[in-house]
């Protein structure tokens, strides 16, 4: 392996030391999904929100719950339904007869990790309430702003859109999720482990936190200190440009996607215990970042859109 110079952390505590622990802990719950787990963690470290798109029952909820548990964060689950109102997410202002005042009752969104289950079942109004909160990191009810906790991390799950009775998220909303991943079916060994092992939920109930919110914030800060060379930025720019100019894509990557790509690549580099970003880091995170933003001109190629992009751009 290439030499790795130690990360220069002024506080002494090396957050990278904990990363291995976090992943190891996660692997005990979600078997055989290391890549997805790492991507989810990357997304969190990069300060973005995560969209998990997959069939019911493959462990989306478990992954979200796990993230909250392992990182020692408060966790709320919002099960979206078609009759859900924005107030059900954000909270309501209720007139308190005792105090003779309007009092804001915080909704489930006031939590460090939110699991928005089956977000595409909700009406667009309810969806937008959540998404606006994700972007602003605060909610405004009756003219009063309420700050959301920090760190704030939304994991939304979505059923594949072809299922009946869904409101697929519009593209503008999709852009607010830094990453979209899918878990997929477990492989043979993982399946066997799931079948024979302890019930996941019970396991999670008693799962110890590996780090706390403080440490998480430190790690997020460390992500920002990962070095990006001009050669690497050249590569990222070439990717963005190609996605916009190549006839293979109907829609290219937005500037926001570009920012997210660099940030996520930094987080991935941190996870890979490097202090500078390599083209490989960009390549690893790009499918998760570009998958829901990039539209292949040929619809049959949509599933491979990110690969088409990666293969089309030589590393300068």
């Amino acid at each position: 392996m290439p030499s790795v110079t130690p990360l220069n952390n002024p506080r002494g505590a090396d957050p990278r030391a904990r990363i291995g622990e976090i992943i190891a802990a996660g692997e005990r719950v979600i078997v055989g999904k290391t890549h997805s787990l790492k991507l989810a963690l990357t997304c969190l470290l990069a300060g973005g929100h995560l969209l998990i798109e997959d069939l019911p029952g493959v462990g989306k909820t478990t992954l979200a719950h796990l993230m909250a548990r392992v990182l020692g964060l408060s966790f709320q689950r919002i099960q979206f339904t078609s009759d859900m109102l924005p107030a059900d997410v954000i909270g309501v202002t209720i007139y308190d007869r005792d105090t003779q005042q309007f009092e804001f009752h915080r909704g489930p969104i006031f939590s460090q990790v939110i699991l928005g289950d089956e977000i595409n079942r909700a009406t667009p109004r309810a969806q937008s309430a959540l998404l606006e909160a994700m972007e602003e990191r605060q909610v405004t009810v009756d003219g009063v702003s309420h700050r959301l906790p920090h760190p704030f991390f939304v994991i939304a799950t979505q059923n594949p859109t072809y299922q009946i009775g869904t409101f697929p998220l519009p593209e503008s909303q999709l852009d607010r999720f830094l990453m979209r991943i899918s878990l997929g079916y477990p492989d043979r060994d993982a399946e066997r482990a799931l079948l024979t092992g302890q019930d996941r939920r019970t396991l999670l109930e008693n799962f110890p936190a590996v780090i706390g919110p403080e440490e998480l914030l430190e790690m997020q800060q460390a992500v920002g200190e990962i070095h990006t060379s001009s050669a690497l930025l050249d590569y990222v720019q070439a990717l963005l440009e190609f996605s916009r100019t190549s006839p293979e894509f109907a829609t290219g990557l937005s500037p926001r996607a570009g920012l997210g790509l660099v940030q996520a690549a930094r987080a991935w580099a941190l996870l890979s215990e490097r202090d500078s970003v390599m083209p490989e880091d960009v390549q690893r995170v790009l499918p998760a970042i570009a998958g829901h933003r990039l539209r292949a001109a040929d619809e049959s190629q949509q599933a491979h859109a990110a690969d088409l992009l990666l293969q089309g751009v030589p590393i300068p």
Binding site: M1, T34, L271, S272, R284, A306, D307, Q311, P314
Partner: peptide, 16 residues
């Protein structure tokens, strides 16, 4: 290698 997972289906493609 830390990242053993290669991007899926990265096949060498003819450079034009």
């Amino acid at each position: 290698m830390n990242h053993t997972l290669a991007p899926s289906s990265v096949l060498p493609r003819a450079d034009h």
